[in-house]
Amino acid sequence: MEHMGIEPDRLQFSWVSSAESTKFVKVVTEVTQAIKELGPNQNLVKTMPEVA
């Protein structure tokens, strides 16, 4: 995905067990933080054609 021009932080993988609530919260906070810093995705966005 990085090779296609998607920023490295935009796609993240994590392994969280259903018993690891604190890890889940931590991961979610970190991911949202990282994505907010990157701002909205600009690449590979499809715009609908304008119809009269």
């Binding site: 990085e2 021009g5 600009q42 590979l44």
Partner: peptide, 8 residues
């Protein structure tokens, strides 16, 4: 990343 996107 931006340069890659533009390149492709």
């Amino acid at each position: 990343p931006q340069e890659k996107a533009t390149y492709f």
